[in-house]
């Protein structure tokens, strides 16, 4: 069990790194799908079976399809070489953040202070989701509808206002000038 979890965690990290290193956006999306699938496998081994299924279908399936759709619409642009901030500074920040997280979690200097806030309750997911976390479900529904409406609004706006004038527009402008003369 320990070996399998270790291999899965390592593979997920490698896939995530390859997703960021990939030269093409489509390849990057495929590496991200691999990361999602490995994360779903890890979740399954941790006992979260329902979450693993949702992650596999949504994270590795739906999101990948969305990426492929967006890349096919927008084009697979050659990605940047220069970075927003200097690379050594970024690496330093990431190492500092990782060390801090590792110190407070793996090393557990405050292990005596971290206690369960309530008595452990092994309630099933459906019971917690519908009875105790009803507001979360409502927020999820609002998020889904808000996201769909936002995407419809964004795409509809572009359909009404094309930016690039085609050859017909030029002919129309020329005709209008001739009429004025």
């Amino acid at each position: 069990m320990t070996f399998i979890v270790g291999v899965l965690a390592l593979a997920a990290v490698v896939c995530a790194a390859m997703a960021l290193r990939a030269g093409k956006a489509l390849v990057s999306a495929l590496w991200l799908a691999g990361t999602s699938a490995l994360v779903a496998f890890m979740l399954y081994l941790m006992g979260a079976h329902e979450i693993a299924v949702v992650e596999l279908s949504v994270g590795a399936g739906l999101v990948t399809i969305l990426f492929v759709f967006a890349i096919s619409v927008a084009g697979d642009e050659a990605l940047d070489v220069r970075t927003v901030i200097p690379r050594p500074l970024a690496i330093g920040l990431v190492i500092a953040a990782g060390l801090l997280l590792g110190w407070f979690t793996v090393a557990q200097p405050m292990a005596g202070l971290i206690q369960p806030i309530a008595a452990p309750v092994a309630a099933p997911l459906a019971d917690v989701l519908w009875n105790q976390r009803g507001l979360d479900v409502l927020v999820q529904i609002v998020l889904i509808f808000g996201g769909v409406l936002g995407v419809i609004g964004l795409l509809a706006d572009s359909a009404e206002k094309p930016d690039v004038k085609g050859p017909e527009a030029g002919v129309r402008d020329q005709t209008a000038e001739e009429v004025q003369l």
């Binding site: 092994a122 917690v128 105790q132 976390r133």
Partner: peptide
């Protein structure tokens, strides 16, 4: 020891993460 609570929050994270991807990709286009 509260597996249901953690999994319910994980479900919320999946939904929020997907919406972030959807809106972000639409903005990118």
């Amino acid at each position: 020891g509260q597996t249901g609570q953690g999994q319910a929050l994980a479900m919320t994270i999946i939904v929020a993460d997907t919406i972030v991807a959807v809106v972000g990709l639409a903005l990118a286009v």
